[in-house]
Design a protein around this nucleic acid. Structure first.
Lengths: 105, 105
DNA sequence: GACATATGATACCTTTTGGTATCATGTTGG
DNA sequence: CCAACATGATACCAAAAGGTATCATATGTC
């Protein structure tokens, strides 16, 4: 199991969470995203790069524009990790339970 | 739905992931954790604080020691967020599907 | 009580991150 | 072709994060 470190990193910032919220409603260019924040396009661009590295967004060129859309890959990676971890946690509790029962004997 | 920002932040670092891996096997003091890394106790302490803020570990005083154990709260928060997001994603695709069908008419 | 041990707290340094300003590149439209 | 627009890239700055060294405090042991 590989942990989606880049995705966790991308999700651990309020500004990037807000950007994802905007993209959840509609696909946007970087300039359009920047229009919703008190921040320059260059600043937004850096956040977009991190979101892309976390596979949370896709960028599709369209003429001179670049359309940013949500990418479910990052979300799926987190979902898979949760599934894996839940399995581990159950095993751990199972092992503990076995240990306690062993102690009772 | 509130996003577990602190938890995502705590999970987005390889060193902290390794610490969680150690604690998954057995509960440890900070000094014991530091023994597994080429890092001072003070350095490890900072990571532990972030893990605690993300509700990924609990600290239990025992005499002059502080035992660090995994806390499932943080993991559960991520799991809840995944569940919420999956629901949203399905709705979004449903809305898109409805839009396409409307277009065909 | 005196001493060793486990930890917390603070100051400090270095690197990374969040952000701006500026310039270079590519695309649309007359 | 040329002007306007959308973006990418770079240099630069301030703030936060990762890490060390050092000191203060609390607990266990003799």
């Amino acid at each position: 199991m590989q942990i989606p470190t880049q995705t966790f990193k991308a999700l651990g910032d309020p500004t990037r969470q807000q950007i994802l919220g905007l993209l959840a409603m509609q696909d946007l260019t970087i300039a359009q995203v920047a229009g919703h924040f008190d921040m320059t396009r260059a600043g937004v661009k850096k956040h977009m790069k991190i979101l892309e590295e976390g596979r949370l967004i896709n960028v599709t060129p369209s003429g001179r524009e670049r359309i940013n859309t949500l990418n479910k890959d990052g979300f799926n990676a987190v979902a898979d990790w949760v599934t894996y971890f839940d399995q581990f946690w159950d095993d751990k509790l199972g092992a503990l339970k076995a240990l306690v029962e062993e102690d009772i004997k």
